[in-house]
């Protein structure tokens, strides 16, 4: 008795690759994450040549090629400079599970910064979001913060609509 199936049936194996690793985030990220965890402060670094405040903070301005000059507090308020609402579910590789949809996703320019960061929005209705809209960071409560960017849960609209 043969167990061999017809040759035209595909042999398709399924498996999960699960890599665990440690990542030393470096001096600039360490200082940023400390301030975020301990004081719910967001910081960037200023380039002494072009005077731009860069978030994430970094040791060198990529365009001026000079070491940044100083640390600067930015946010927690800011404006949306680009946005979408993601309606496609896919697996978050950092957890192995699908992020629930829909969710708002945006470029946020924090007050005092000249660059933008990607982050999530509390709002997931597309027609309630616009470029130029003011938003503010929503932090996890202090005991839950662990010094990662996820200490900012998301950004929510400023003003009356955001009152609870």
């Amino acid at each position: 008795m043969s167990t061999t199936p017809p040759i035209d049936s595909a042999l398709r194996l399924e498996y999960v690759a699960d890599f665990e690793y440690s990542y030393a985030a470096g001096k600039f990220a360490s200082r940023f994450m400390d301030a975020l965890r301990n004081e719910a402060r967001i910081q960037g670094t200023r380039c002494g040549v072009c005077d731009k405040v860069l978030v994430p903070p970094r040791p060198v301005c990529g365009l001026c090629l000079e070491r940044t000059a100083e640390w600067v507090d930015v946010g927690p308020g800011g404006v949306i400079t680009g946005y979408t609402v993601v309606e496609v579910p896919f697996i978050d590789p950092m957890t192995g599970i699908k992020r629930p949809i829909p969710y708002g996703f945006a470029f946020v320019r924090l007050d005092g910064a000249d660059t933008n960061i990607y982050h999530f929005l509390e709002e997931s209705r597309h027609d309630k979001i616009s470029i130029g809209m003011r938003i503010t960071a929503v932090f996890k409560p202090a005991p839950e913060r662990d010094g990662t960017l996820a200490d900012i849960i998301h950004f929510r609209a400023e003003g009356p609509a955001a009152d609870e």
């Binding site: 999960v16 400390d34 990662t148």
Partner: peptide, 9 residues
């Protein structure tokens, strides 16, 4: 800061 993460795919 040392981040302990994974890539699960």
């Amino acid at each position: 800061t040392v981040l302990h993460q994974k890539i699960n795919l």
